[in-house]
Design a protein around this nucleic acid. Structure first.
Lengths: 195, 195
DNA sequence: AGAGCAAATTAACATTTGTTAATCTTCCAA
DNA sequence: TTGGAAGATTAACAAATGTTAATTTGCTCT
């Protein structure tokens, strides 16, 4: 029922996991399906789970003071989603996460996962896995804002997310890049005029 | 010689540390002094250490494609500094860290610290401390870029860093906020005209 | 096929930012 | 005390962004 192939690729990052180790982890995992548009994590709710995306796209967004949405997170197949706020300061999520397409997720309780990791030396190297992943993602994003122009940020996004770019509405990509949909449209116009 | 007061406040975050636990950690710590302007971490170097700032200001910056510097990190008294890149992907630091003022740091090898934590159950709750701190900082910064205008970002910076703002040259603050020094100067002019 | 809706593009204008360069401050050192 | 140098401000112009609104495109659902 669960496909091991791609997930095992991730688990291999935990180095030296035996098949029984992996299977034990799987007993903690629950599958969850979302319909397109359905909300996955509500704002304000503490959601201490990590989910592997088997299928679909999940988007996390926050509210700006002017009432507009700002896309915080975009995740798709074979990536992990989690509420950054819940995992870090254990407060309610400041963002709302919802499915942009029909989704199939494999969820695991973060605390249970950490307990399991602590008990089994084989897992130890994977302890920092999720936190590191989050921090790396955030660092890359931040570097983009400090080092690059909006247009360059868009270029980088396209290169890193060829698939996503075609499946996610531009308006979401715009706020992910920190600009308005109108501005993104003009950037695209400029780029196509140049080529 | 080492002042325990402020540092203990941090260590208390590791919950339930006995004095002997704390003292053991202190045997791993080495003091390091930097003169104003001196480079602390060179670009490209793997620097897997965490430093507590007893005195002074440390600034981390990266190079933009146009050759200009972009301030990545600003840290001062009673905060921790570390090379984000070194700690996360164990590659050389993409940033250069240098002292903006004469500094006194308390350094500890990150790997040794983690070993110690692993061996002693008392420390376990502090295992995520640094990674969480880094991730939280990055998350806050990123939210600023996605949710706020440059001017709002400056306001937030002033409120959170009253001391730093007076000690750090504006040009460094500007690039920390993702704008040019000229633009920051105009923002300040607008603000004072309004009040 | 066609109506209807959301998304994307385009237009027009105000605002802001970037860029370059000149001017003014400040502060340290000779 | 007085240069000198670095930082900050101001000016002037080009370019990009935000904002609002109209138009067009594309897609879904009946």
């Amino acid at each position: 029922m669960l496909e091991l192939s791609k997930i095992q690729r991730y688990l291999s990052l935990f180095t030296n996991l035996s098949l029984s180790d992996i299977l034990h982890l799987f007993t903690l995992v629950k599958e969850r399906k979302l319909k397109a548009g359905e909300i996955y994590i509500h704002e304000g709710v503490v959601h201490k789970k990590v989910a592997y995306i088997k299928k679909g796209i999940v988007r996390g967004f926050m509210m700006k003071s002017n009432g507009e949405e700002a896309t915080m997170v975009l995740r798709s197949e074979d990536e992990f989603v989690a509420s950054y706020h819940s995992l870090l300061h254990k407060t309610g999520s400041k963002a709302t996460y919802h499915a942009l397409e029909d989704c199939v997720l494999l969820e695991i309780e973060y605390d249970k996962l950490m307990e399991t990791i602590d008990k089994n030396p084989h897992y130890h190297s994977g302890r920092k896995f999720f936190l590191s992943n989050i921090a790396e993602d955030l660092l890359n994003r931040l570097e983009g804002f400090i080092l690059l122009t909006p247009e360059e940020r868009y270029d980088v996004f396209l290169k890193k997310n060829t698939t996503l770019a075609k499946r996610v509405p531009d308006k979401y990509i715009a706020s992910y890049l920190g600009i308005t949909p109108v501005s993104l449209s003009r950037i695209r116009a400029r780029k196509s005029k140049r080529s």
